[in-house]
């Protein structure tokens, strides 16, 4: 029993790791007023760029190739995050549309490149999982401090609440939002790098499997608070872990003619829990007031 609890705990932590990384990106972006559905695309691109770069540099040894993989994920995340900021802030595209477009781009491009470059698949040594876990444990506190204790964090919260009000206080929204959304791309892409470099040691075209959306749900679940969002990530991580444990242990439960431990049904759990969470949280939680508003030209 205690062994089950242990493996559930570790499972929860490890499943929550990429969710937390992406959710911190989500918090930064949404607190600054930019809806971030693109987390999904950031994760996928980060996963591919990381594993790809690690594969290319594998001949220089494990450490170098791991570092380069991380660096590649950070870079692709920054580029796509910047793109999302540019589209929403400069071309005034609807935030959801921009996010969907980036997700499509990430999905199409990684699929194409993967099939073209690695028709036989690939495998890398990668990076130990605990490194990401440590990052995921520290990051929520760091983001919290950043938001509450620094001038930049105050500016970020201000532009998310009211771009106009911030401007009247002498703070222009654009640089803050660009930085916040770019950083969100980096963090989510690191979540992706965890999936490919540390967890799977390879790439599959559906490696993100909605984790970006679930990370976003964790953000809302945590009421846009970094620690709350991390809690949300743990909550969803637990369901993934539970599903895995039940499958590994061949635990099955039949009731009313339905196999409740069927993998498809267990798969549904995080998504159902997300809807339930959204249903009960929103209405009480107040999102940043300027979230998703299109920009006025001035």
């Amino acid at each position: 029993m205690s062994e089950l609890i242990m493996s559930l705990t570790w499972g929860t932590l490890y499943y929550a790791t990429p969710l937390t990384l992406a959710a911190m990106g989500g918090v930064l972006s949404e607190k600054a007023g930019v809806v971030n559905i693109a987390l999904e695309g950031f994760i996928l691109s980060g996963a591919f760029a990381g594993v790809c770069a690690a594969d290319v540099t594998s001949k220089y040894g494990v450490i170098i190739s791991g570092l380069v993989g991380i660096l590649a994920a950070i870079m692709i995340g920054a580029v796509l995050g910047f793109l999302h900021a540019f589209l929403t802030q400069k071309t005034r595209m609807d935030h959801v549309v921009s996010g969907l477009g980036i997700n499509l781009l990430a999905s199409g491009a990684t699929q194409y490149l993967y099939l073209h470059e690695y028709p036989q698949g690939l495998s890398v040594t990668g990076i130990p999982r605990w490194m990401f876990l440590v990052a995921a444990l520290v990051l929520p506190f760091a983001v919290q401090l950043l938001l509450v204790r620094t001038h930049w964090g105050l500016k970020l919260r201000a532009v998310g609440e009211s771009r106009e009000g911030a401007s009247m206080a002498g703070v222009s929204a654009l640089p803050v939002r660009f930085a916040a959304v770019t950083l969100s791309g980096v963090l989510a892409a690191l979540g992706g790098a965890y999936l490919s470099l540390a967890d799977d040691h390879n790439f599959s075209t559906d490696v993100s499997a909605g984790k970006g959306y679930i990370a976003l749900a964790a953000v809302i679940f945590g009421k846009w608070n970094p620690l709350g969002a991390a809690g949300g990530a743990l909550f969803f991580g637990f369901f993934y872990a539970l599903q895995t444990e039940l499958q590994i242990r061949h635990i099955s439960a039949h009731f009313l003619g339905i196999s409740w431990t069927n993998s498809f049904l267990l798969d549904m759990l995080p998504y159902i829990m997300t809807i339930v969470a959204l249903t009960s949280v929103i209405g009480k939680a107040v999102p940043p007031a300027d979230l998703g508003k299109e920009e006025a030209t001035d």
Partner: peptide, 28 residues
């Protein structure tokens, strides 16, 4: 690889997407 079609879709969304919600935009 035929997933190249998805890239076209992405480009279309990102370039035509500014027109995505013409009503909301017009309101603003």
């Amino acid at each position: 690889p035929d997933s190249i079609a998805v890239v076209v879709q992405a480009a279309v969304v990102l370039f035509a997407g500014a027109r995505a919600l013409p009503w909301r935009r017009r309101q603003n």
